[in-house]
Design a binder for these strands. Structure first.
Length: 754
DNA sequence: TTACTAAGACTTTTT
DNA sequence: GTCTTAGTAA
C-alpha cells in the first residue's frame, strides 16, 4: 500500500502529528496521498472507518476517494462520512432536523430556485427591484451566509446595506415558512447546530477522530469554522491543498485559510509534495517561473525526473477565426500522428470563446465535447418534474408551487396567482393551503390543481419511485405537453432518462443501503425519545430529491467517446491531457479585464494560467488572436503579459513574434498596475507590440501601442481598441491618470511618437 | 394566454 | 453576436 510512495508522500501518509498541512502541487499525487492515508489509518488500527470524516468539494472527488480506498483495502465504507461539505451538512441536518429547527422533509434550493424565491419575495414586499436587483440581493445573502452572518450580525454601514439586511431577514422568514434551505444555508445551519447544541457537538467530536480535507485552498470562511468546530480539541486534521491553484476566490474561497490552518493547527508540520508525475520539464519550469510572479505564496517548486520534453509553442494569428482554424489544423495533425482525441484539450478563459473553435472542429468533422453549460438536473423539464415531486413530498415549497401551478398551462394566470398570494399572506399560510380562499372560476382551477397534487401524494404511497415519476409526468400533463411541442422530443427523452436515473438510484440505495446507514446511526443513538437523532427512515423520494439538488449531474455527456475536450480553465482543474491548447492568451481576455482592477485579481488570473499550464503532460500550445469578435464587435488586443512572464528558453514561436516597440509609457503601465510586483524588479518593462490591426477615425489612424496625448489626461498609450467608426473606443493607459476608455470619435487625441 | 419585440447583459461557478 | 428577460400587442 505504501510501497509506491515517494519520501514526502510517505511522510504525509504516515504522519503521527495531530495536524498536518500538505502542500500538494499539481500532479504530485494528492488524491493518492489522501486515500492512502485513510487506508493506512484504518489498517494500522488508528481508527475505525466509523471515526473517519473526509470532505471534498465535488461529488466526483468524493466518489473517487471511496473507490480508491476500497480498491486498496476492503473497508466497510457505510459508516464513513465521505462527501462534499454540502452533502455532509445535509446528512447532519437530516439526522437532527428538530434541533436544527427544520421540518423533516426540508427541500434544498439551488441557485436558480433561490433566485426565483428572492424575486417572489421582492414582489410580495413591494421592494424596488431597480434599487435591489434580485441578483444583487442573492449575492448579498450568500456572501453573508458564507461568512457565517445572519441579518442581525451582518455589517451595515449605509442605508442601502441596512435595507439589504432587512431583505435578508424577510428571505430567511420566507425560507423557514416554506421549509427550504439554500446551499449556503446548509452549511450555516449545520455550523449553528454544532455550535449551539453541546450534545450533538460532543457526539460528533467524539466520533470523528480523523478529519481529512481535500482542495483546502477552496474552503470559505464558514467551512473553515465548521471544520474547527467539528474537530474540537482532540481530532486530527489533515488538510491537503495548493495555494497556487486557488482560483475560486470570486465565489468566496479564502486562500487565507491555509495560513490560518498553519497558524491554528499545523504549526511546522507542513509537508510539500513537489515531485510532479504528470508533465515534462519545460512545462513545469514555465509554470514555476510564471507563478513566481505572485506574492503571498506559501512557496513550492515543481520538479520532475522525466526529462525536459518539448518546448512550449506559441502561435499568434490575426483573428479569432484564424486562431481556431490553426488550432484545428494542428489538432488534425496530432490525431494523424496517433494521438488520442480525448487526450487533446482546448482550454479557454471564458465560455464564449468555444464558439469559433467548435465551428472549426465541426467543419473539419472532428468529434468534440464541450464541458459546461446546463446539467441534467438543471434542465427545465427535469426541474418541472422535480417541482411536482417536491410538492408531493412537502407541499410548503412555494417556489415549486409557482413553478408548476400553471405548467402545463391550466388557465391559471398572473392575476389569479396575485390573488392567491395576497390570500396566503393574509391567512399566513403557504400558497397551496390558500387555494380554497380564492373565489370564482380561477378559484376552481386552483382547487383542481391542489386536488391533483393531493391525489398524486396518495398515489405516491403505493408506487415505487420510478413508477411515481412516470405517473407524475402523465397525470400532470407534462408528457402530453412535450409530445405536442415541436421540439419536445429531446425533453421527452430526458424525462425518460430521469426515470432511468431514479431506477438506478433506488437500486444503488438498496445495495449500499441508506437504510442500513440509518441503522448504523441509530445503533449509536439508542431509541430513547431524548436522542437528538432522527428516528424515521427517510423515503426513497426524499433521498432522491436531496440527491437531485446536491448533485446536479455530470457536466459532461456520454463519456468514453473519443472526442476533443473543450472547456474553460476552471473546468479543467484536476484534469490532465497529453496535449493542451491554451487559447485566447490576450490582454483583457486572459488576464480578464475585469480582474485587472479587482483586488488580487491579477494574481488569481496568474494562478489560473498556472492551472492551465500544469494540465499538459507532453505538449503545450499557446495561441492568441490580435482581433476577436466579442459582444458583437471586433476587439483588438495584444499578447497577454503572462506570455512575457515565461522565460524565452522554454518557448518556441511558431509564428513570428510580433515586433516589440520601445515605449516609455509602457513602463508607466506597470507602475499603474500595482499587482505586477515591481518591488522585486523581476519584471522587465516590456514595450507593447505594434500590430497591423488599427482603427481609423476622422482621418486619424490608431493602433495598439500608439502613443497619444489628451488635453486633460496627458500622455498615454493605447492598449486596446474596440469597435469601428463612430463606435470605436480605445482603452488608454495615461502616464499620470491611469487607464481610461475613450470614444475615439469624441475624445480629442493627438498622436505622438510611439 | 401566447407571441412577438425590445432591451440589456456578457468572466470564471465544485454545491 | 446571441441569449435571457421584461413588456406589450393580438
Amino acid at each position: 500500500m505504501i510501497g509506491q510512495l515517494n519520501p514526502e508522500q510517505l511522510a504525509a501518509v504516515t504522519t503521527n502529528e495531530q495536524h498536518t498541512l500538505v502542500l500538494a502541487g499539481a500532479g504530485s499525487g494528492k488524491t493518492k496521498v489522501l486515500t492512502t492515508r485513510m487506508a493506512w489509518l484504518i489498517q494500522n488500527g488508528k481508527v475505525s472507518p466509523y471515526g473517519v470524516l473526509a470532505v471534498t468539494f465535488t461529488n466526483k472527488a468524493a466518489r473517487e476517494m471511496l473507490t480508491r480506498l476500497t480498491a486498496m483495502l476492503p473497508v466497510d465504507t457505510r459508516g464513513m462520512w465521505v462527501g462534499t461539505f454540502h452533502g455532509l451538512c445535509n446528512r447532519l441536518l437530516r439526522a437532527h432536523y428538530r434541533d436544527a429547527g427544520l421540518p423533516q422533509n426540508f427541500q434544498i434550493l439551488d441557485i436558480a430556485d433561490q433566485l426565483a424565491a428572492i424575486k417572489r419575495l421582492i414582489k410580495a414586499n413591494d421592494i424596488d427591484d431597480e434599487k435591489f436587483p434580485p441578483k444583487d440581493v442573492q449575492r448579498f445573502i450568500n456572501n453573508a451566509k458564507e461568512n457565517g452572518e445572519r441579518p442581525d450580525t451582518v455589517e451595515v454601514w449605509d442605508a442601502h446595506r441596512k435595507r439589504l439586511a432587512e431583505i435578508y431577514q424577510l428571505y430567511q422568514e420566507q425560507c423557514q415558512r416554506e421549509g427550504v434551505v439554500d446551499f449556503a444555508e446548509l452549511l450555516l445551519r449545520a455550523y449553528e447546530l454544532l455550535s449551539r447544541n453541546v450534545l450533538v457537538r460532543e457526539h460528533y467530536q467524539r466520533r470523528f477522530r480523523y478529519i481529512l480535507i481535500d482542495e483546502f485552498q477552496d474552503t470559505n470562511t464558514l467551512q473553515y469554522k465548521w471544520l474547527c468546530l467539528l474537530a474540537g480539541a482532540h481530532a486530527s486534521l489533515f488538510a491537503v491543498g495548493d495555494d497556487d491553484q486557488s482560483i475560486y476566490a470570486f465565489r468566496g474561497a479564502n486562500v487565507g485559510n491555509m495560513s490560518a490552518f498553519e497558524r491554528d493547527y499545523a504549526g511546522n508540520n507542513i509537508i510539500r509534495l513537489e515531485q510532479n508525475y504528470r508533465s515534462y520539464g519545460h512545462i513545469l519550469d514555465a509554470a514555476n517561473a510564471l507563478i513566481e510572479h505572485n506574492t503571498e505564496r506559501l512557496g513550492k517548486n515543481l520538479w520532475t525526473d522525466r526529462g525536459e520534453g518539448e518546448l512550449l509553442r506559441v502561435v499568434e494569428q490575426p483573428t479569432d477565426l484564424l486562431e481556431a482554424q490553426w488550432v484545428v489544423d494542428e489538432i488534425r495533425a496530432q490525431i494523424n500522428d496517433g494521438r488520442l482525441r480525448s487526450e487533446i484539450a482546448v482550454l479557454y478563459r471564458s465560455n464564449a470563446q468555444s464558439r469559433p473553435i467548435e465551428h472549426a472542429l465541426f467543419s473539419a468533422h472532428i468529434p468534440y465535447k464541450v464541458y459546461g453549460g446546463l446539467r441534467f438536473f438543471e434542465r427545465q423539464e427535469i426541474k418541472h418534474v422535480l417541482a411536482y415531486l417536491r410538492l408531493i413530498a412537502s407541499g410548503d415549497d412555494d417556489t415549486s408551487f409557482m413553478r408548476v401551478v400553471n405548467f402545463p398551462t391550466r388557465g391559471i394566470g398572473a392575476r389569479t396567482l396575485e390573488n392567491l398570494s395576497d390570500c396566503a399572506r393574509q391567512i399566513g399560510c403557504n400558497l397551496i393551503h390558500a387555494v380554497g380562499a380564492v373565489s370564482g372560476r380561477s378559484g376552481t382551477k386552483l382547487l383542481a390543481f391542489a386536488k391533483l397534487i393531493e391525489t398524486l401524494r396518495e398515489d405516491a404511497q403505493t408506487l415505487s419511485l420510478p413508477e411515481l415519476i412516470k405517473h407524475v409526468t402523465d397525470a400532470s400533463g407534462l408528457n402530453a405537453h412535450y409530445e405536442a411541442e415541436r421540439e419536445g422530443a429531446e425533453r421527452l427523452e430526458n424525462l425518460g432518462e430521469l426515470i432511468n436515473a431514479a431506477t438506478a438510484f433506488c437500486a444503488e440505495e438498496n445495495l449500499e443501503g441508506k437504510a442500513a446507514l440509518a441503522q448504523v446511526e441509530r445503533s449509536v443513538a439508542p431509541d430513547d425519545p431524548d436522542s437528538p437523532f432522527a428516528q424515521e427512515l427517510t423515503s426513497a423520494l426524499a433521498l432522491f430529491l436531496s440527491h437531485a439538488s446536491l448533485e446536479a449531474g455530470d457536466n459532461q455527456a456520454q463519456a468514453g467517446e473519443d472526442a476533443i475536450q473543450l472547456m474553460t480553465i476552471h473546468a479543467a482543474k484536476g484534469l490532465e491531457f497529453d496535449s493542451v491548447f491554451i487559447t485566447g492568451v490576450e490582454e483583457g481576455l486572459f488576464p480578464h479585464e475585469n480582474s485587472i482592477m479587482a483586488e488580487d485579481g491579477l494574481e488569481e488570473e496568474r494562478r489560473l494560467m498556472y492551472v492551465a499550464i500544469t494540465r499538459a503532460k507532453e505538449r503545450l500550445t499557446f495561441s492568441l488572436a490580435h482581433a476577436r469578435m466579442l459582444h458583437g464587435q471586433t476587439r483588438y488586443s495584444m499578447r497577454s503579459r503572462f506570455l512575457e512572464e515565461l522565460p524565452d528558453d522554454h518557448l518556441k514561436w511558431l509564428t513570428p513574434r510580433t515586433r516589440e516597440v520601445a515605449e516609455p509609457s509602457w513602463g508607466m503601465r506597470l507602475h499603474v498596475d500595482a499587482h505586477a510586483r515591481p518591488s522585486t524588479g523581476r519584471i522587465e518593462p516590456r514595450a507593447p507590440r505594434s500590430i497591423s490591426s488599427g482603427v481609423s477615425v476622422s482621418g486619424k489612424e490608431y493602433r495598439i501601442g500608439q502613443g497619444v496625448r489628451h488635453s486633460r489626461f496627458g500622455d498615454g498609450t493605447i492598449i486596446r481598441l474596440t469597435g469601428q467608426g463612430a463606435d470605436a473606443q480605445a482603452e488608454i493607459v495615461f502616464r499620470d491618470t491611469g487607464a481610461k476608455t475613450l470614444a475615439l470619435a469624441v475624445a480629442k487625441l493627438d498622436i505622438i511618437a510611439g
